[in-house]
């Protein structure tokens, strides 16, 4: 029963997402320009990708890792620019390397000191971000090179997305899906019981590193659209919303992908209605609205549901008491 409900929901979400464009064309006079189409497509692809990958981050209690890693990517962007100029490939590779180094540094601090995870994340976040800012100021001072566009990695600039970025997102999305499908069992095991996984002979470190790499790749791809500050919301909001509706990992990942795609696409469409509304923040607001809806309405777990059941229980209890009292 629960199974079918979630799959129906996913289908309804996707249908609603597809219908959203003609609807807003008819109701709000949306002009479906090339930019809007590309941004909406990019937003939904990124939403789907980060929704799926974010599930593992949320379930492993590493929600804020995404925040630290996205900030940690900034010096990589700057170094990539210094070494190779303004080529998206170089910037993304640099971002990936820096973000991955940040991940290793967090792990090293946790392994060798008694500092807890939150502080370790904070140290890496702040110092890498500072390094990034220092490098960006240095780049700004270079005479020949204007740092045009590097700022967009901080706040995200959806309008800068072009068709080739979509192709990149699609290709990486496919690769990530493939890795998830191939190593599904391993990822599931390490997410829910890492100790059992390593006791069972699984190469825990390797799988762990691979899962973290997936998160890093997703973050790096999302930087251009959402920016380093808001990327963590992209990563975890769809996963948290999906978690409320189901107890199965399979359903959660697919539902989170659908919710993420919906938030990404509709956020982009809404922001296209008014030129003053930035895309990245709008996507985050839509995603949070989905979380709020899920927390309130989700059957079995949601706040509303629990209150109903509580009232039911109370009535039941009262009638029982009357029976025995009589």
């Amino acid at each position: 029963m629960a199974e079918r409900r979630v799959w129906a929901m996913i289908a309804a979400l996707l249908a609603l997402g597809v219908l959203l464009v003609p609807l807003s064309q008819a109701l709000f006079g949306l002009r479906l320009t090339y930019t809007v189409r590309v941004v909406a497509l990019g937003g939904s692809l990124l939403g789907a990708l980060s929704g799926a990958v974010g599930c593992f981050a949320v379930l492993r209690r590493e929600s804020l890792l995404g925040d630290a890693l996205s900030h940690a990517a900034l010096p990589g962007v700057a170094v990539g620019f210094l070494l190779a100029g303004r080529q998206l490939g170089a910037l993304l590779v640099g971002a990936g390397i820096a973000s991955w180094l940040g991940l290793r540094l967090v792990a090293a601090i946790l392994r060798t000191t008694r500092i807890k995870q939150d502080a370790a994340l904070g140290i890496v976040l702040a110092s890498f971000f500072a390094a990034g800012i220092a490098l960006l100021t240095y780049i700004q001072s270079l005479p020949e090179a204007s740092q045009a566009g590097l700022d967009s990695f901080i706040f995200g600039q959806a309008a800068a997305i072009i068709a080739s970025d979509i192709a990149l997102l699609g290709a990486v999305g496919l690769a990530v899906t493939l890795v998830l499908a191939l190593l599904w069992k391993e990822f599931k095991l390490i997410t829910f019981d890492a100790e059992f996984a390593s006791a069972g002979g699984l190469r825990g470190g390797l799988i762990d590193a691979l899962l973290s790499t997936l998160i890093v790749v997703t973050i790096v791809l999302g930087l251009q659209l959402a920016g380093v500050i808001l990327m963590v919301g992209m990563l975890i909001a769809p996963a948290i919303a999906a978690r409320q509706w189901t107890h199965s990992l399979e359903q959660m990942v697919v539902l989170a992908a659908a919710l993420g795609a919906f938030a990404g696409g509709s956020g982009a469409v809404i922001s296209a209605l008014d030129s003053d509304i930035p895309t990245g923040p709008m996507i985050i607001v839509v995603a949070f609205a989905l979380v709020a809806l899920s927390i309130t309405l989700a059957p079995g777990r949601g706040v509303l549901w629990r209150q109903l059941r509580q009232r039911e229980n109370r009535r039941h209890f009262r009638s029982r008491r009357l029976e025995t009292g009589a």
């Binding site: 949320v58 209690r61 929600s63 995404g66 948290i240 927390i295 777990r301």
Partner: peptide
């Protein structure tokens, strides 16, 4: 319904 770190991240 939401863990501490996730709540902060939201």
């Amino acid at each position: 319904l939401v863990r501490q770190d996730a709540a902060l991240g939201l």
